[in-house]
């Protein structure tokens, strides 16, 4: 399928971009950074194009749906959101360091989608329960949240590295700035995760007759939500900044990963994604 082929090429472009960001760190100066940015923009553009092709193809091979309805498609969309959000952040803070942490996430997700034999990439028709606009908004908002949390995770790692005296740490933005950006990313992710949980509940309400049934994926999304709520309150009211905040961003991301992948090994409704 054309979209899948294009996506496997994008995987290499992302890896190339990551490599350029790395070179940018080792050989500071204008060149590598600019190349890295344009490489990832190119990759993102092709990625977007591939998503559109796939969307079009769902009308050919099925009844037509936004392509975020199976595991393969969700990985592809996750990767797309991470790269897109990163590019936005880069343009806003005018610093390319986060690329070293974000691009590999985008790359790994896409590589897993494209090259793992256990991930089925064909376009499948939708079983009745999945034919719902609420489901589309649910998946969309959840993965935007995941992308924001992934960037926060990258920032958390960056914070720890920025603390150690080394060549690299001098290239990083100031720790205060990392800290502030980390907070903003988590706030953004929190809003989207909240939306994601609610739209998911509405969907479940119509499809399964119950807005909340404590299945493992639901429960873990709630746990993730609680961890980030903990972060926001700890920060706002007890002034958890710096290391504590960075550490919580790592814990939160571990929860995100478990919500996304880990729970597939526990029984429940959402396992249709497999």
């Amino acid at each position: 399928m054309m979209d899948a082929k294009l996506l496997s090429i994008v995987t290499f472009v992302y890896f190339g971009a990551f490599f350029c960001y790395l070179l940018h760190v080792i050989f500071p100066g204008r060149w590598w950074g600019t190349i890295a940015t344009w490489t990832s923009r190119l990759g993102f553009f092709a990625h977007t194009f591939a998503l559109l092709i796939r969307w079009r193809l769902t009308y050919v091979f099925s009844t037509g749906h936004v392509p975020i309805t199976n595991f393969y498609e969700s990985l592809v969309f996750f990767s797309w959101s991470v790269c897109g959000l990163y590019l936005l952040v880069e343009a806003r803070i005018k610093n390319r360091m986060l690329g070293v942490f974000s691009l590999p996430i985008a790359f790994l997700l896409l590589a897993y989608a494209s090259f793992s034999p256990s991930v089925e990439s064909t376009i499948q028709p939708l079983i009745p329960a999945l034919q719902s606009n609420w489901l589309t908004s649910h998946v969309l908002t959840c993965f935007l949240a995941y992308a924001a949390f992934s960037c926060a995770f990258g920032l958390g790692l960056m914070y720890f590295i920025a603390g150690k005296e080394s060549i690299i740490s001098r290239l990083l933005p100031q720790r205060d700035m990392i800290d502030e950006l980390l907070y903003q990313m988590i706030a953004l992710g929190f809003v989207f995760l909240t939306l994601g949980i609610f739209t998911g509940s509405v969907w479940a309400h119509y499809a399964w007759g119950s807005y909340w049934s404590w299945d493992p994926k639901e429960t873990w999304s709630l746990i993730t939500w609680l961890v980030y709520a903990l972060f926001l309150h700890g920060r706002f009211v007890r002034n958890w900044r710096g290391k504590k905040a960075a550490f919580l961003s790592l814990v939160g991301f571990a929860c995100v990963l478990f919500t996304y992948l880990g729970v597939n090994y526990l029984p429940g409704l959402h396992t249709y994604l497999r």
């Binding site: 429960t219 873990w220 746990i223 609680l226 903990l230 309150h233 700890g234 007890r238 729970v263 526990l266």
Partner: peptide, 17 residues
């Protein structure tokens, strides 16, 4: 608040395992 949110998260973890 922090303690309660933490306990809720732990109960959730128990509930899935």
């Amino acid at each position: 608040t922090l303690a309660l949110l933490f306990i809720l998260a732990v109960l959730g973890i128990i509930g899935t395992f």
